[in-house]
Design a protein around this nucleic acid. Structure first.
Lengths: 201, 201, 201, 201
DNA sequence: GATGAATGAGACTTCATTCAT
DNA sequence: AATGAATGAAGTCTCATTCAT
């Protein structure tokens, strides 16, 4: 038998593509860039993918799926809601750093290929489900109108994504840190406000 | 006279570039595309710009500046705040449709060239100043903490931009309409909530 | 046993090559095409041949040799000349259909590699010898000048080859049929003409 | 105004393509080969043609049309038939040397693209018309059956084409010379034969 | 011996930019 | 100032050939 198709190698190519596209975008990244970063010959990329566009799509999905998986793992535990929301704030933003390339370098092209709406939707639906659990345990406030709530959620989530995407790599950590702080304060205030409304304070 | 003619031609090129880049992105748009849409020869573009990148920068700025100007014109009138906020909701989103190309087609590349942070910042600062006026006349609520308020504003503004940018041209108007409705509801609720807190309801 | 198996595999590859080259030509046929049609892996082709060009040469020779063999078998029997000439006309053209690929798909490249003159020559010499036998039994006419006779033979034989090579596969059988009819008529006339000249009619 | 599209340059490219394709065939000829032989940059070829295939088609047509034109010019004069047939034999074969490339290098691919049947047909029809004039002035014999005559003509014409096409360039002139001699002899014999039949000799 | 993944040279084609007209 | 033909660098992709398994 000959050398077998190597899933590890495909992953290496994909990882390399993810970084390269994230850095420079679809058009400014060459197959050679990707290949040499992955330690293979240019032609080898075509053993695992049929076109550059397919590599791009796979790289975008890699980033988003990794993000979704990490989010799910973090949120869907048996711990009490308070612990999970702290996890979200404490570690959730770290996840964004890993997917920063999808936002910074792959945004427009991914959008043009209609690869984004789906993932933004998945993300927001996951968040919504999570916060729903919080609502049931009375922890979080928000508009009593579910449509407004969804819009608010969607806007804030998207807004955070956009803000992170525009951050150049070198300012990325600071930007994330400041967003994190703001979210923490916002939540604290929200809880206080609710307590006031409920006459608990 | 000659000067005017030239300026007019430069504008035509820029307008054409704005549309072409917005539709297809930096890399998928050729100088010839831009030139022929503007009714000039490819070489003529180089009479007014030195490189394709410069055309791109100028097109991005054209879009954003036009947006900023329209926003300013709309918000900075002498009319009472209530009228202006209705204008914002009624007509503001129409402006977004005009700048959709910057978001849809020029996002990543503009970002990579660091042309975005500035404009997002200008937009948010303008909005902040506007809502500040509202606050002074007691119309709008929001966190008492200015940092949280700014974060909230920035997130929602950015979120709206992202959501619009993600909409394909054919779904654009519907998407804008639904965002508009959500914002209206959100504001109504916000005013009610404040009235409740203040014991007015 | 092993030897036989190998030979059989080599034949399969060659057969596959003959068809593929005949269909698409040297440059438009890949080693993979040939291999997969033969039911082997691309690498295996290199166990039996050293280069693609060698495969091509072998395929060309396969076609021509098969043709020469079939012609020889048909012509060199002990039957009377009249029977054999009828065989030639009745079945000879069927042979051309089998070698059509050499003519249609392999012509130019085979020619460039100087693989053709030899085979056209072999064919014409065989035909000449055959007709010579006819002459001896007084059956066929033709120029009394052997050089003219050879030229005439060569031209008609080559002309038939060219006409068949030019026929697209789907028109091949019709084309062959019409050539067959024309040859039959021509021969009949020739015999009549000779009879006239000899005062037999 | 800019440099104008230069018909002379297009001709130079075509001429270069004709020679290159004729020498090496479609697949073995690169656009760069053609361009550098024509003294232009590779990209310039694409100013005048859209694909390599288009260049090839144009080169094939160039060769054949030139041939048809020369034939027509030679045959369609007011001179007596005897003079014209001598022209045909004396100079006609020289024309074949000019088109040798179409036959040697472009045959198979041109055939695959169905560019040949038409031209072979045009050639044979032209010849038929010419010999028809001869028949009317009683100069030439041949089968009284027009179908047989056409087949004979077609075969001999095609046969000559094939024989010339298989000649390698260095043997080309000799080959043509010997065909020429054979044709001359064949015609002389044909005339003699007719005289015999008619009792004139 | 067979396999087929890996290689990398090389082809076509595009397009930003230049510059003769 | 405008034009658009010319240039040539660069990118994607193919495929003959090699060689580890």
């Amino acid at each position: 038998m000959a050398r077998q198709l190597d899933d590890e190698k495909k992953q290496r190519i994909l990882e390399s593509a993810f970084e390269a596209f994230g850095e420079a975008g679809l058009a400014n990244t060459t197959i050679k860039d990707i290949a040499s970063h992955a330690g293979v010959a240019a032609g080898t990329v075509y053993t695992y993918f049929t076109t550059k566009e397919e590599v791009f799509r796979a790289a975008v999905d890699l980033g988003w799926n990794r993000f979704h998986d990490d989010m799910a793992e973090m949120l869907e535990t048996d711990e009490p809601f308070e612990v999970r929301i702290n996890n979200l704030i404490d570690y959730g933003f770290d996840l964004l750093i890993r997917v920063h390339p999808i936002l910074r370098g792959m945004f427009s092209d991914a959008n043009r290929m209609d690869l984004l709406t789906h993932h933004v939707d998945v993300l927001c639906t996951g968040m919504e489900r999570f916060f729903e659990q919080g609502r049931r345990s009375g922890v979080l406030v928000g508009s009593p109108n579910p449509r407004v709530r969804r819009f608010f959620l969607n806007s804030v989530v998207s807004g955070i994504l956009l803000n992170i995407s525009v951050a150049p790599p070198e300012r990325l950590r600071d930007e994330v840190e400041s967003i994190k702080t703001a979210v923490q304060e916002m939540m604290r205030e929200s809880l206080v406000a609710r307590a006031v409304v409920e006459g608990r304070l």
